[in-house]
Design a protein around this nucleic acid. Structure first.
Lengths: 228, 228
DNA sequence: TTCCCCATTTACGTATACGTAAAGAAATAC
DNA sequence: GTATTTCTTTACGTATACGTAAATGGGGAA
């Protein structure tokens, strides 16, 4: 497992470590939306100087996870319903394209097997009523799609926006209906890829993300999460 | 004019200035692909210290315009045919979505007028056989579309990738056939937006970007630009 | 009490200092 | 002449220093 996802090694610099650690804490809601931290505090927490912390904050700000205001520290941004609408509009357009591209290119038997295995993971998790495992498997499926799409830039942007929506998906995991249709969608997508039907692959995945996006936006609006 | 494009003001920091100046020089091929510059040199050139220069380089590297290798300086990345393929695949998917969104929302008369004015600019430039003016007008049209799409994130990413392809479009401007069909495409897009036909708007703009992307990739392959 | 002005504090933007590891040069061995 | 090794240089990553402008709090005026 984890066959496709890991990055090139390369010296892990302090700035890189700062980026990863701060981001991880935001994604896991350890720094919840609205949190305010000063550069100094983060530097102390991570046991390094302000310089690499600043470099990490610049990246995180560009990616839309935090907002850094001149003498107020960094602030972890909440994800509003409108943010989610924007994010999913982008994810929908891009992931549908990635899926279509895989179908156009045709997947090798090994890759098809990996896709099917990912769907099987999701089925198993759902059968066991293990929502956390399901979320993990779902994430895995989407990342395998990205790994196979043959466009590194496309992969990178989609991952960036998946990260941004991660907190919301996590918080709403138990508020949403059982994700049966997601598994069905993915199975149908794999089938379309197998018969190299790019048009159908696009339509299935487009509808999949569109539906999920709307559901999350509605949940945000209804439960008023992401305020602050 | 320039009604929609300018950014919020805010103190322009040295790091921001470094970013803009370095990027501008890259986009205008003043720092051509393959150029190598040290942080020190850039700092001296821009009359500031290494710190803000570094912050600018981090952003530029993330955006894929340069590559910074420890102890070799930053290197302006060439745009290969494959890079262009990747960039245009993303632009195609995203801009088509932006166009469709405008059609769905419906454009106010003022906005429709601005779109039509942008097309008129392109027509005038083409009639006058002024390719540089045409390129400017074309860019303007695309930016107006972005300004109206109602999705700030979508706008930001598309602009980022338009920047990345800017050098290639500039260098190939006189190698390509007269862009008559581009003007026709844009006119048809505006018409689709006017009658709120999102499906058609999507299809027109998708085909437009797909065709232009393929043309640029082919030009890059044929003329072997972007090596190094 | 409420408002405003001024002094103090402080967080950040930028500059500078420093150590290290890699690149390049020089010298020696073969 | 070529290869290997050592030495020097240097560019960057990180730490620290410093000035400034914004935020905060208190005191005085109404």
């Amino acid at each position: 497992m984890a066959s496709v996802i890991d990055e090139a090694p390369g010296r892990v610099t302090f700035a890189e470590r700062a980026y990863r650690e701060i981001k991880a804490r935001i994604l896991e809601n350890e720094f919840p939306a609205g949190s305010i931290m000063l550069e100094q505090e983060l530097a102390a927490l991570l046991e390094m100087s302000r310089t690499p912390v600043r470099e990490a904050l610049i990246r995180l700000a560009r990616e839309g996870m935090i907002d850094v205001r001149p003498r107020h520290g960094m602030r972890v941004l909440p994800v509003s319903a409108n943010d989610m609408r924007e994010i999913y509009q982008i994810l929908t357009a891009l992931e549908a394209e990635a899926a279509a591209q895989i179908a156009r290119d045709g997947a090798t038997p090994a890759r098809l097997a990996e896709l099917k295995a990912a769907v099987a993971e999701m089925d198993a998790a759902l059968a066991a009523d293990d929502l956390d495992a399901w979320a993990l498997a779902d994430d895995h499926f989407h990342r395998v799609i990205l790994a196979f799409c043959g466009n590194e830039r496309l992969k990178a942007i989609i991952e960036q926006f998946m990260d941004q929506s991660h907190r919301v998906r996590k918080l709403t995991l138990r508020l949403r209906p059982r994700p049966v249709s997601s598994n069905d969608d993915h199975r149908a997508l794999v089938a379309a890829i197998e018969r190299r039907d790019a048009e159908t692959a696009w339509r299935i995945h487009h509808a999949h993300r569109l539906r999920n996006g709307r559901m999350l936006v509605e949940l945000l609006e209804r439960h008023g999460l992401g305020q602050l």
